[in-house]
């Protein structure tokens, strides 16, 4: 298989740690929009992702065969992260989170509150309210947010385990449209930053990782590719590649003057 032939790894010990839990993949995947449970299973396998988000509203725990959400996820290797997609306000999100906990047996939740059905943009106010209450109730909360640096800090302050800012509106495959704001979020964050939504190509994923994101999430780009498992493999490589570039410190932009400045170098000559 193609995926076995390309094996790119750094020797650096570089795990992703979220709320004390260690993951050796920095690639999250979403499970919506796939054409069959079989394709989804193969995609998860070739992505080597360890955090798999699942829409609670689609879960059919009473019917494992038809259940598009949990079908074929190896629960020993992966964390099934229930998401609250479809929730329009904090109350609905909290109810779904509780149901997610009952279904998965753990208290991690990807918090999504999207009252606008056209662009599915996250509601900052309701997301914040829900995060506060869920954290009080003992949940580990990973909120999906707009690329808003102040909101990101505030969510971090109330105890969110990560922040998950969007790169572009969900499902658009348009790449990183929120670059300037993402940079600020990444620079300021004390919790992992997972770039979520809008990444359409492996190069977008690599770019996010090169910017210093801790992880990325992809779904539509994989599910709607002609060959989802192959695309998942491509994304996984891009995530590793972008991460390695970030770790190498290559090409970082700096606002400080450097000694090699060709114009003002004479000032430092003897």
């Amino acid at each position: 298989m193609y995926k076995d032939k390309i094996n790119f790894q750094t020797d650096i010990d570089d795990n992703l740690v979220i709320n004390g839990k260690t993951f050796n993949s920095r690639f999250f995947i979403g499970t919506g929009k796939f054409s069959s449970p079989q394709i989804l299973r193969e995609t998860i396998f070739s992505s080597k992702a360890q955090i798999i988000t699942v829409a609670i509203r689609r879960a059919r725990p009473d019917n494992q065969v038809e259940d598009p959400a949990f079908a074929g996820i190896d629960l020993d290797k992966c964390l099934v992260l229930p998401n609250t997609s479809g929730a329009r306000d904090a109350q609905e999100a909290i109810r779904l989170a509780k149901l997610g906990k009952a279904l998965t047996g753990h208290n991690w939740v990807k918090l999504e509150v999207t009252p606008d059905p056209a662009n599915l943009l996250p509601d900052p106010i309701e997301t914040f309210k829900a995060a506060q209450q869920l954290i009080k109730a003992g949940f580990t909360v990973l909120p999906y947010i707009n690329a808003d640096p102040i909101l990101a800090k505030k969510l971090e302050e109330v105890g969110c385990a990560t922040v998950m800012p969007l790169a572009a509106p969900i499902g658009t495959n348009r790449g990183i449209k929120t670059r300037e704001l993402l940079k600020i979020i990444i620079e300021q964050a004390q919790v992992p930053v997972v770039v979520d939504a809008g990444l359409g190509l492996p190069s977008h994923a690599a770019e996010a990782m090169e910017m210093g994101a801790d992880a990325i999430l992809a779904n539509t780009a994989l599910a709607t590719a002609g060959n989802p498992p192959l695309m998942a493999n491509a994304f996984a490589l891009a995530v590793q590649s972008g991460r390695a570039a970030w770790l190498s410190g290559a090409g970082k932009e700096s606002t400080r003057a450097r000694a090699s400045s060709p114009l003002t170098g004479f000032l430092h000559q003897d």
Partner: peptide, 24 residues
Amino acid sequence: IRSAGMEPLWKDWDWAFNREEDFS
């Protein structure tokens, strides 16, 4: 639907959206 390369979605909603319930 399956043979057309798509997945039938029987459930796309959950009564948890509008039902107060203790799930724990």
